[in-house]
Simulated scan of single mutants.
Amino acid sequence: MIGLSGCVSTGANVTGNEVGVTVNNVWNRNIAFPKADEHCRKFGKVAKPTNSDGEYAFSFECVKPDS
């Protein structure tokens, strides 16, 4: 039996701008969040999850970090 523990999601698609970002082609929000946060940090912001998720797609707002 082949386990999936060694699989890494390398096919994530990240699209967005300084306001928000969507990460799709990932299994869950835990995989999507670091990719979204990396995108938002390019604009001096951090990723904040939204409630608008689709199948294998997760949306985030890019917001100013708390001081």
Rank of each mutant, 00 (worst) to 15 (best):
I2N: 04
I2W: 01
I2H: 07
L4N: 11
L4V: 05
L4G: 12
S5Y: 09
G6E: 13
V8S: 12
S9T: 15
T10F: 06
T10A: 12
G11H: 07
G11R: 11
A12C: 00
A12Y: 02
N13G: 04
V14D: 03
V14N: 04
V14L: 07
T15M: 03
N17T: 03
N17C: 01
E18P: 00
T22C: 01
N24S: 15
N25W: 00
V26H: 05
W27A: 14
N28P: 01
R29K: 14
R29D: 08
N30V: 00
A32S: 14
A32H: 05
A32Q: 03
A32L: 10
F33S: 08
F33A: 12
F33H: 14
P34S: 08
P34I: 09
K35A: 06
A36K: 09
D37G: 03
D37H: 08
D37R: 07
E38V: 05
E38D: 13
E38C: 01
H39D: 07
H39K: 13
C40N: 08
K42S: 06
K42F: 01
F43A: 00
F43D: 02
F43Q: 04
F43Y: 15
G44Y: 03
K45G: 00
K45Y: 06
K45V: 01
V46I: 15
A47C: 02
A47D: 11
K48H: 03
P49A: 14
T50L: 05
N51W: 15
N51R: 14
D53E: 05
E55L: 13
A57F: 08
A57T: 14
F58R: 07
S59Y: 09
S59E: 15
S59L: 02
F60T: 04
C62M: 07
C62H: 00
V63Y: 05
K64W: 04
K64Y: 06
K64P: 00
P65E: 01
S67P: 14
S67K: 09
S67M: 11
S67Q: 11
